[in-house]
Simulated assay, not measured.
Amino acid sequence: MAGWNTKRKFWKETSVSQGEDGFAVLLDGRGLKTPAKTPVVVPTETIAQAIAAEWDVQVEEIDPLTMPVTRWANAALDKVALQHAEVADMLAEYGGTDLLCYRADNPQELVNRQAELWDPVLDWAAETLGARLVPVQGVMFQSQDDSALEHLRTRVHGFSNFEMSAFHDLVSLSGSLILGFAAVENLRPIDELWALSRVDELWQEEQWGRDEEAHELAEIKKAAFVQAHKNFNLCFN
């Protein structure tokens, strides 16, 4: 039952053990469990070592905020694994209202900037993902091509539980299914992809100055977006 039943550190040694189902994280030889008491067994040794390292550096009290890989694994095991199809469908729905498709109709400078920065990513999605999404001006909903959305949905359903858990954060934080795919496909540096999700906000800052509270919140979200990208890549190392 090693894990979240206490907030105070109770172990001395952290280790990793390989079994038939994957790699387990051990605290003083006892298997780590999620808050829902699911054994923490992960698909790669790299993930297990990253989780073990987070537990190893805890001092007197367990601080979940310093353990992003552990929290990601918990979500994959306690949430995504139990409702994989539902999570996939929810994420795929972002394609119908993707951030990159909803454009300003004025001022012209912002219109031009959105087109310059977002159109190449939509072109990439059409070529690489087999999904041509069409941009529209204004906030009124406009349906996208069913076959394009189905291509995207099929790809989302193909993710493993751990991949899906990371992909969820990439999509929900950016507001864009396409940027989520661009991140996992390493289309551009992750900082650049995050900036693409904030074109409107950055333009507003240029016009009216920075809102420090909004900026701080954006930086927190950016850090989570970057971490989600790291987590996804851990599935392949």
Results as ranks from 00 to 15, higher is better:
30 R>L: 14
135 P>M: 00
123 D>E: 14
203 W>Q: 07
127 E>F: 05
125 A>F: 04
195 A>H: 09
208 W>P: 00
228 A>M: 03
2 A>T: 08
158 G>D: 13
68 P>T: 05
66 T>R: 13
176 S>L: 09
172 S>D: 10
214 A>H: 01
118 W>E: 04
25 V>G: 02
32 L>C: 07
106 N>F: 08
89 D>R: 12
164 M>A: 12
51 I>Y: 10
122 L>E: 03
64 P>K: 03
148 A>M: 11
166 A>Y: 04
40 V>H: 02
76 A>K: 00
36 A>G: 10
167 F>M: 12
189 P>Y: 04
13 E>T: 14
69 V>E: 07
234 L>I: 02
54 E>I: 11
20 E>L: 10
103 R>S: 01
197 S>E: 02
134 V>Q: 10
181 F>E: 09
95 G>A: 02
104 A>Q: 01
82 L>H: 12
52 A>I: 11
225 F>R: 07
26 L>K: 13
44 T>C: 00
215 H>R: 15
31 G>C: 14
23 F>S: 02
134 V>S: 10
33 K>P: 02
58 Q>Y: 14
156 V>S: 08
103 R>K: 09
42 V>L: 08
235 C>W: 00
135 P>H: 00
145 D>S: 12
186 N>V: 06
101 C>F: 03
32 L>H: 08
48 A>C: 08
54 E>G: 03
103 R>G: 01
38 T>S: 08
124 W>S: 06
171 V>T: 11
43 P>A: 12
137 Q>Y: 07
232 F>S: 06
20 E>Q: 13
109 E>N: 03
37 K>C: 09
45 E>Y: 04
30 R>M: 10
68 P>S: 07
201 E>N: 10
60 E>M: 11
204 Q>S: 11
104 A>N: 00
21 D>H: 11
11 W>F: 15
87 V>M: 13
62 I>G: 06
229 H>P: 00
124 W>Q: 10
9 K>Y: 11
137 Q>C: 06
174 S>R: 04
118 W>D: 01
68 P>Q: 08
190 I>M: 08
118 W>L: 02
17 S>L: 12
65 L>S: 14
1 M>V: 12
45 E>R: 13
10 F>Q: 09
122 L>G: 05
42 V>R: 01
156 V>M: 11
174 S>H: 03
21 D>W: 02
34 T>W: 05
118 W>G: 00
77 L>S: 13
54 E>N: 06
104 A>L: 00
227 Q>M: 15
63 D>G: 07
72 W>D: 12
196 L>S: 07
145 D>Q: 15
88 A>M: 05
27 L>R: 06
137 Q>I: 02
35 P>R: 06
21 D>K: 15
169 D>T: 07
192 E>I: 06
22 G>E: 14
100 L>P: 06
109 E>H: 02
126 A>D: 12
134 V>G: 04
145 D>F: 06
173 L>I: 13
115 A>G: 11
132 R>Y: 01
138 G>H: 00
169 D>V: 03
231 N>H: 11
14 T>F: 07
81 A>E: 05
217 L>D: 09
79 K>S: 10
104 A>I: 00
110 L>E: 04
31 G>Q: 15
180 G>W: 09
13 E>Q: 15
121 V>Y: 04
204 Q>T: 10
4 W>T: 12
118 W>R: 06
168 H>E: 08
234 L>F: 13
70 T>S: 15
27 L>C: 10
56 D>E: 15
3 G>F: 02
